[in-house]
Simulated scan of single mutants.
Amino acid sequence: MRVDIEDLDVAYAGRTVVAGARLIAAAGEITGLIGPNGSGKSSLLRTVYRHLRPAAGRVLLAGTDLRRLSPARSARHVAALPQERSGDLELTVREVVALGRTPYKRAFAADNATDRDITARALTEVGMADAAGRRFTALSGGERQRVLLARALAQEPDVLVLDEPTNHLDVRHQTDLLALLRDRRRTTLVSLHDLNAAAAVCDRLHVMHAGSVVASGPPREVLTPALLAEVFGVRAAVVEHPLTGDPLIAYDHRHPGLPAAPSRPRRPGHVRPATSRRGQQ
């Protein structure tokens, strides 16, 4: 399912945090949002999973305005792993993941065999099947992150929205999560601070700065030394990963003294506009 974000404005606490954002997440592709802290990535994603209402513009799911769908229907299409985490749920791991089946059931209905199978499969996919009977509150931060991802997978959505999903995960589980996203090939909108992870997993990147989308395109075209200096304020070389062939960013940690990025950087001329690499699917 394709996602179109059209001329999106988002205001929070009386301040505009996203202004005129336009981007596409093509069906079956992994679309990444990158940018400095405070650039508007999380606020934009929150409009897609309906945590925030846009001040202007709209989010389209397969051409239908998201706000025209009921919450239950939109929850069958879009599942989220937000940065703001659920409280200390006094539930077992299995019970937390089973909450992902809620959009498909009537109120207070018990899980059926299909729900149980989907829940078990989601736990296996994130490597938490052995912890199904443990209390969610007893888990580490990384374990909780994987359980909440399993809950999103149990929703069986057309679109996954993931806001910094590798937070709290060790290197092995970060790698496993990125491999899972690649293998599933579900339409995915994901924000990532780790630019090398973004280069490895994303089909297309949208760079945000000061609330605007300032560059869009495949990682190899977007992640240039000039853009990294201008938007992120770092000196870096972009080389080929020796194992995968993906772009690999090598930062200059010895000379970090680049001036701060301007509040509204120039749009790099060689980067394609914010449309799908595979066309208007």
Rank of each mutant, 00 (worst) to 15 (best):
G87M: 06
R204N: 13
R272I: 10
L8S: 00
A260R: 14
R220M: 05
M1A: 14
L60H: 12
G279P: 05
I249G: 02
P262S: 12
A62Y: 07
R267K: 10
T92H: 09
L192K: 02
R264C: 12
L99M: 14
R182A: 09
P268V: 11
H253W: 11
L192H: 02
V48Y: 02
R184V: 12
K105L: 15
D194C: 04
A150F: 06
E156C: 11
R134K: 15
E230I: 08
G28Y: 02
R235F: 05
D158E: 14
E240R: 10
L177M: 14
P265G: 08
V97W: 00
A72N: 09
L162W: 04
L149D: 01
D170H: 13
R235D: 10
I24R: 12
L169M: 03
L189Y: 03
E95I: 07
R22C: 15
L44Y: 00
L189D: 03
T244I: 11
V161F: 09
V214S: 03
V78P: 01
A79Y: 04
R151K: 15
L192P: 01
S140D: 07
L8D: 01
S263I: 10
G127H: 05
M208C: 05
A197C: 07
L160V: 09
A250M: 12
G279N: 10
L178T: 02
D117F: 10
H77M: 13
D117C: 09
G142R: 01
H51C: 06
K41N: 08
A226H: 07
E125H: 06
H193M: 06
G57Y: 00
P256Q: 13
V231N: 07
